[in-house]
Design a protein around this nucleic acid. Structure first.
Lengths: 114, 114
DNA sequence: TTATTGTATTTGTCTATACTAATATACTAC
DNA sequence: GTAGTATATTAGTATAGACAAATACAATAA
């Protein structure tokens, strides 16, 4: 009871789901940071690569100021890490867990089969 | 290149990640609906069960009005389904994909090992 | 040094969201 | 019918978020 078969390699138990307030608050903070179209697109543009702000601006398509503000939000929440090289700043997804979550969301939300 | 090994049973390819505006908008709308502490807690209280509003109120811990408003948001976004039985209304997570996502978030965000 | 490029921050404004309190609706029981 | 219970909705207010425009900062190039 409480176990749902989801496929050959991925089951989960309901009892293991998030229960602690602390976990819930942390998860909702991170999700809130991710759940904005531009920020989600930034994450998708980044993928597992390291990309300069300029390239992010070109790929995402809004003002430099706006991108910078969204990058700050993602950086402050620990979603992104950054590195400065000469004139430019390069951003990357901070950890594997977030990369995994993005991939998972693609599985859940994307229309295209995979 | 572009492939990240995440474990024995779950790899993903960056090229497969969300790219279409449509997918991004849909995902961000759903994530926004989920990324509120009370709504996330509602989802966790529900799990794979069907729970009455009264029981949700008791478990989540805020006013009936507030819960009802959050339930409406989740219902309107298609996250939850509801069923009326006599005096009561029972809510449940609408589809397996969302249940999976909640479980995935638990993997990504929760402190406890699993 | 000044000019230029790349990025960040500040400020103001507009919109969206969250919450409470009160009220409305729907159903049951009597 | 009335009273009571369960849920939804509305209205008002308060807070947070998003965006643009302007400016600041940092590094390089000349």
């Amino acid at each position: 009871m409480g176990s749902i078969a989801l496929g050959s390699s991925c089951d989960f138990r309901i009892e293991d789901m998030l229960v602690k307030e602390e976990d819930i608050d942390r998860a909702s903070r991170s999700l809130k940071a991710i759940s904005h179209p531009l920020r989600l697109k930034i994450l998708c543009v980044l993928g597992d690569k390291e990309v300069s702000v300029q390239d992010i601006v070109d790929n995402v398509g809004t003002s430099q100021s706006n991108i910078s503000q969204h990058l700050a939000i993602l950086r402050d929440k620990g979603i992104l890490a950054s590195r400065k090289d000469a004139n430019r700043v390069y951003y990357r997804v901070g950890d594997y867990r977030t990369l995994r979550l993005i991939s998972m969301m693609q599985e859940v939300f994307c229309s295209a089969p995979h």
